[in-house]
Design a protein around this nucleic acid. Structure first.
Lengths: 207, 207
DNA sequence: TCTAGTACAGTGGTCAGACCAGTCGTTTCT
DNA sequence: AGAAACGACTGGTCTGACCACTGTACTAGA
C-alpha cells in the first residue's frame, strides 16, 4: 500500500492494487491470485481488509474463491451480478422498457456492423450453421454479436440478455427460416432490408 | 440467519438477508441500516462477515457508509460500478476501436429513438436551444441521449463519453449549423436523412 | 436563561490472532 | 505398487481490541 490510509478506505485501495497487479502480470481468467495472507503481508494491511476487497470482487463475479485452493480470476459473465442488481434496482417500470428497447437496438447495431464488416465467407459459414444447428434465440444473437468483434457490445449484450430474460416476458417463437432470412439480408448488404428483417423477426410494428 | 452455513458463504446469506430486510421494512434510499454490531448480533454471525457483505454492497454502489454515523441505502446510479467493471475488462487494444464504434452507434440509436418518440414541441425546444446556447459536443449529445428517457443508454453513453475523451483523439470541429441541421433532420422524421446527417457531422465516410 | 464547551456513547475502520474446514502433495505403511 | 496418514497451505469465520469520527446530552460559564 502506498499513501495515506486517511482519505480512501483500505479495501478500495486493495481493489485498485489488485487491478494493477492483474495488469502488470498480465493475468488471465483462470490464473491464480496470491493468497489472502500473502496479500496481507505484501500490502501491509490486515487480512480482514484483504478479505473485504476480495469478497466485493467475488460478488461482482470478477474472481472466484475455492476453499483450500485459492483465489482465481474469473471469466467475466456478469451472471450473478445481474441477478443481484436486478432484484435491487429493477423495480420501476421504465427500467423494463429501457431494457427491451436497448437490447433490440444493440442487436440491430450489431447486425449493421456485420453488414459492413463481416466477409461473405463469414456470413456464409454463419448461414450454414443457422440452417443446420439447433439453437435458442440467445445463442443465435450471441453469434451475431460475437461476429462484430466488438467486445463492448458483447459485454453489454450479455448483461442485457440476462436482464431481459429475468423479466419473464412472453416468448415469441421464431422459426429457423426467419433466422436464415436475416442472414440472407446481411449478405445483400442492404441497410433497410436488414432493418426490416429484424423488425419482422421481433414482431415489431414501428419501434 | 437460517440454514446450514455449509453450502453458501455467510456473507452472501447476509446480502440476501439485507435485501429481505430492505424489502420488508420498505426502506428507501437515504434510510439507515442497522449498525454492523447490531446486524452481527441479530444474525448470529461475526462482525467481520457482516462487514464483508456490506463492503461488497458498497462497492456495488448500493449502500453508503459514513464513519461515526452509520450505513445508509443509496440512490443507485450505477456509475462507479460500470466504471469498475470497465476498467477491469477494457484492457485489450481493440478496446479503443470498440469505444469509438460503440459510442457512435449508440448516439445514432438515440437519435433514432428521438425520431420516433420525441414530440415536435420537444424537438423545437431543443432546436432553439441549439441555435442560441453555447455547448460542447458532449453537452449536445447528452441532451440527445437524455431526450430519449432511456436510462440505460444514458448510463452507457456517459461512460463511453469519458473513455472516449480519455483516448485523446483529434477533435473534429463541428459548427453550430451542423448541430441545428441534425435536429432539423429529426423533425423530418426520416430515418436515412438523420443517419446521413450524423455521418456528415462526425465526418464519417462509410462506417 | 442561554451559550459554549465537554464528556460519553455509538458507529464505522482496521488489525491481530485464533480455530475450523477443505485441498494437495509427500511420506509412510501395508 | 497401492493405500493410508500426515503436514503445509488455503479460504471461512469469529472474537476482541483499538482508533477516528459523529451526534447528543450534560455541565460550567457568561
Amino acid at each position: 500500500m502506498s499513501q495515506s490510509r486517511k482519505d480512501t478506505k483500505i479495501y478500495v485501495e486493495i481493489v485498485n492494487e489488485l487491478r494493477l497487479m492483474i495488469e502488470r502480470k498480465n493475468l488471465k481468467p483462470g490464473d491464480k491470485l496470491p493468497s489472502e495472507r500473502e496479500l496481507s503481508e505484501r500490502l501491509n494491511v490486515g487480512r480482514s481488509s484483504v478479505r473485504e476487497a476480495l469478497r466485493a470482487l467475488e460478488l461482482l463475479g470478477l474472481i472466484e474463491t475455492r476453499r483450500g485452493e485459492g483465489t482465481y480470476i474469473r471469466d467475466y459473465g456478469g451472471h450473478q451480478l445481474v441477478q443481484l442488481l436486478s432484484t435491487f434496482i429493477l423495480q420501476d417500470e421504465n427500467a423494463k422498457r429501457d431494457i427491451i428497447e436497448t437490447k433490440y437496438l444493440i442487436e440491430l447495431d450489431c447486425l449493421w456492423l456485420n453488414l459492413h464488416k463481416s466477409s461473405d465467407g463469414q456470413l456464409q459459414e454463419f448461414k450454414s450453421w443457422a440452417e443446420t444447428a439447433h439453437y435458442t434465440d440467445d445463442e443465435f444473437f450471441l453469434k451475431v454479436v460475437r461476429l462484430t468483434e466488438n467486445h463492448l457490445f458483447l459485454r453489454m449484450w450479455i448483461i442485457l440478455k440476462d436482464y431481459y430474460n429475468s423479466l419473464q416476458l412472453d416468448q415469441i417463437a421464431t422459426s429457423k427460416e426467419e433466422y436464415v432470412q436475416l442472414i440472407d439480408m446481411l449478405i445483400t448488404r442492404n441497410e433497410s432490408l436488414i432493418r426490416n428483417a429484424y423488425k419482422s423477426l421481433r414482431k415489431l410494428s414501428k419501434n
